[in-house]
Amino acid sequence: MGKAAGEVRIFKKADLFVIAAALIAAAVGFILVFTRPAGEYIEIAVDGDTIATLPLDRDAQYELPNNVIAIENGEARMEYADCPDLICVHHAPISRRNETIVCLPNRVTVTVRGGRSDVDAISE
């Protein structure tokens, strides 16, 4: 199969740079994700358009044609989705600002909004 077939190396030193770059990208992402303050309400959006906002401090259920979103104990989660992969249903509950659950097949997103800085802005 040509000379290329003989030259394949599983690992070269430079591969460490690729792995290190990916690790750094992930670490920066985790820092951004885990330093988020607690949020106050969730925004439910379909195709990027917000269709509902619900406060996180009151237990509630919100029904869409293909999804059901539940708020319990200050956390929001996807209770039901009619898609086959159910990635969003298995996603851990969210409560921090800008945390989000995405249902790709139905193009539904649930995002936590509000939080300390927003509150400060309102109270001042």
Partner: peptide, 18 residues
């Protein structure tokens, strides 16, 4: 399609990609 919020998944997915 859905706005920038989807990037919350990126760190986990990047670790898995390695």
């Amino acid at each position: 399609l859905m706005g920038g919020v989807v990037f919350g998944y990126a760190p986990w997915m990047t670790l898995a990609a390695i």
